[in-house]
Write a protein that binds this DNA or RNA. Sequence first.
DNA 1: AAGTCGGGGGA
DNA 2: TCCCCAGACTT
Length: 360
Amino acid sequence: MTQTPAQILAQQPPAAIADRLLEWFDQHGRHDLPWQHPRTAYRVWVAEIMLQQTQVTTVIDYFNAFMARFPDVATLAAADNDTVMAYWAGLGYYARARNLHAAACTVVHEHEGAFPRSVDGLMALPGIGRSTAGAIVAQAFGIWAPILDGNAKRVIARLAGVTATPGTSAYENSLWPLAERYTPATRVTDYTQAIMDLGATLCTRRRPRCGGCPLADGCLAREAGIQDAIPAPRKKKTRPERTTTMLVVEDGAGRLLLEKRPPSGIWGGLWSLPELSADHDLASFCRERLGLEMQSQTRLAPISHGFTHFVLHIHAYRVQGRGMTRIMDANLAWFAPDARPGVPAVIARLLDTPQSDLNL
DNA sequence: AAGTCGGGGGA
DNA sequence: TCCCCAGACTT
């Protein structure tokens, strides 16, 4: 029989949970993450956006480079979008970068450069949902707010024995009230970091190390021996496959022709190789879209790239031709090798693998 | 409520 | 190879 949050909390007094977690955090938590020193609202915000669906170890280098180039919100707001996107290239989920830039402009021009200090105020900015808003409020301002990121979800679901399937409304709706009740009135900054650290280091997705966990005593999942079954695995889905064609076009000076992708969709707003649908004719595309009379084509080794919801097979051709000086619109441009903007990581690998040509 | 957005890392 | 990760947004 499913227990209500009130019944669960009756067995697990929130204050006892928070105290044990904070005691563990003081000794074993992560205290040297870049965004913790100094812990400004701007730095916490940028870090939280980068950390959405992205692991800490991946984010750190991007965060440091980003801060060196955009040290404050005014600098970020004043930058052009291409520069911001270039610093995001390789991190994925490029809508995050677009939203980040838009939010910076809003903060500068509508909030006099100061971040909102409430969950609702932050959620009004693009790219900030309830969990990220809670994390910023708690970490940047020390104001009470619950979070419910992937780590907190896993810790709380095990602690309270929530067996609902992740991704469902029932799962989210059962966890938020618990997240609120466990969050203490004091040391909210440390508590927020602590529950994420516990999830990242001990209460991991697979093989949780319950032996060293400060919350093992009273953890309903552990007591029932079902900590490995929470959270329930997501149902696996067969990803459909798509095929596309991309062109590597270089001029006599070694410059590369790139196309800025539409704001929405895959790699939105990022510069990438010119792309044509699989059934489109190569020569006519070159002539009509690129202003290029194709003289030769070399097929490169095909690449398969897995996205969240489909697999993309990329057929790339190295194309040579004449009349390449005429650029058809602002979304096409030539780039010298040392001035190449950020491109998707899979495209960067393709371009940096010169031995990929196939002889036809 | 379900689908749409990448890329890296671990097992 | 498969699955997950400091989720938010759209429909």
